[in-house]
Design a protein around this nucleic acid. Structure first.
Length: 394
RNA sequence: GGGUAGGUACCGAAGCGGUCAAACGGGGCAGACUGUAAAUCUGUUGGCUACGCCUUCGCAGGUUCGAAUCCUGCCCUGCCCA
């Protein structure tokens, strides 16, 4: 992509955004022809980034492609406060070590999307950890309580008689101050960040700076299609997920959600002539290609087809499960879940799964919890609809 | 500081001396149907060495044959007042 005129850039940059405050300011800034500083703040509350995070990251990269400077703020400090955005409850606070660990993997993954050479990484702890209490108070004096309480999240919580703790009210302030510190021209964020970003504008104005443009991108829904994609809800597709997983997760979404993913992740709409399933396979393959490679996408697709369309587990590529000490149905299934799928299930739960006909051994339902089948090398053990393993003995 | 309403399983919310591992709804999980879709239907949803046993109803004690339910103290939250 070449820099293009200011108007061309504007048009491209506005694509896929939900709200921009305001377009005129953005155009003015673009017309100056000097590289803009586009800020994106991320709180490393969890190590892995998922497709939900990629929406603003892709937007940031678009700025880079036009020759602008990306400023990625790692909220090592803010992560410890906990962003109340979209939250109905106070977030648990993280320790500094957890945050720094998360930050490391986070940036590594972010560079799957961003151009490293045109990204400036800063930690907001660099300035906040140095602030004196007097300075903190002074920061607080810049805004009014009423302004902070205008925030939707707080309003609803208050309306529902739920607690709002004072430190949460500080969050927008802190995020806003980041904008001052990095002299942001534009701040990118999800629509739930609008309030915080606007506080940044106010802060910059009061510092005599030109206010940043608030650019909000839509929030990506998670696999359930309702709630926002997040690690804690376990409804996410991680950019580091294995190709097979990634492909499978995309295939499990609803058709409506697929349309949403098409626009938000690929920036286009799907061909309504295509069969929804084919469209979904295409989407899945493109996502896998983006974060892995075309080969792994093709492979993932083929394997998915033999496994789920043709239900041919025998020729599918399945993880190997080395039989442990226990040989009874409950023991083996529990162990397989734990060792291969990192899923801990209680014996009672496994017993239920067996009785409900979830488990199959070489295509035969295994319903007796106490059964001790004669396990053989290469047995196909299907734990549930989505999870199967190939048994290895000894 | 005073008054008042509360703290029940993943969430919301019943229960208010035994029949309570705790109604109901949501969510989750599994099965059927299918396109590993949605919708729908069914089952299930504390743990275990399982017709029994153990741990749960903010925490700690107490009353009682017996407590989520009664009493005492403590902790926490909302609301009103100061």
């Amino acid at each position: 992509m070449s820099p293009g005129t200011a108007t061309e850039q504007l048009e491209a940059l506005l694509r896929g955004t939900a709200q921009v405050i305001n377009e005129k300011d953005l155009l003015t800034k673009l017309e100056r022809g000097t590289p803009l500083r586009a800020k994106l703040g991320v709180d490393p509350t969890a190590p892995d980034i998922h497709l939900g995070h990629t929406v603003p990251l892709e937007k940031l990269r678009q700025f880079q492609e036009f020759g602008h400077q990306a400023v990625l703020i790692i909220g090592d400090f803010t992560a410890q406060i906990g962003d109340p955005s979209g939250r109905s409850k106070t977030r648990p606070q993280l320790t500094r070590d957890e945050v720094l660990d998360n930050a490391k993997t986070y940036t590594k993954q972010a560079f799957k999307i961003l151009d490293r050479d045109r990204t400036e990484i800063v930690f907001n702890g660099d300035w906040f950890n140095k602030m004196t209490f007097a300075e903190v108070i002074a920061l607080n004096a810049r805004v009014t309580m009423q302004q902070m309480l205008q925030r939707e999240d707080f309003k609803t919580r208050i309306a529902n008689d739920q607690e709002v703790r004072l430190h949460e009210i500080q969050y927008p302030l802190v995020q806003g101050w980041d904008s001052v510190m990095v002299r942001a021209d534009v701040e990118i964020g999800g629509t739930d960040q609008l309030f915080n970003i606007l506080v940044g504008r106010d802060m910059q104005k009061s510092e005599g700076m030109e206010p940043q443009v608030a650019m909000c991108v839509p929030i990506l829904e998670g696999l359930d299609g309702v709630k926002k994609m997040s690690k804690s809800l376990d409804n996410y597709i991680g950019v580091s997920d294995e190709p097979e997983d990634m492909f499978g997760k995309v295939m499990s979404i609803s058709d409506e959600l697929m349309d949403r993913y098409y626009t938000l992740l690929l920036g286009e709409s799907r061909d309504p002539e295509d069969h929804p399933m084919d469209a979904k396979k295409a989407l899945a393959a493109r996502i896998v290609t983006r974060y892995h490679s075309e080969e792994s996408a093709t492979k993932a697709r083929e394997n998915w087809e033999t496994r789920f369309s043709q239900r041919d587990l025998a020729s599918a590529d399945l993880p190997d499960y080395a039989l442990g000490d226990r040989r009874d149905a409950v023991g083996v299934v529990a162990d397989a879940y734990a060792s291969i799928f990192q899923t801990n299930r209680s014996n009672g739960e496994i017993r239920r799964l067996l009785q409900q006909g979830s488990v199959q051994l070489n295509g035969e339902k295994l319903t007796d919890p106490k059964a001790e089948p004669a396990w053989a090398d290469g047995d196909i053990l299907k734990l549930d609809k989505k999870r199967s393993v190939r048994v290895k003995v000894g």
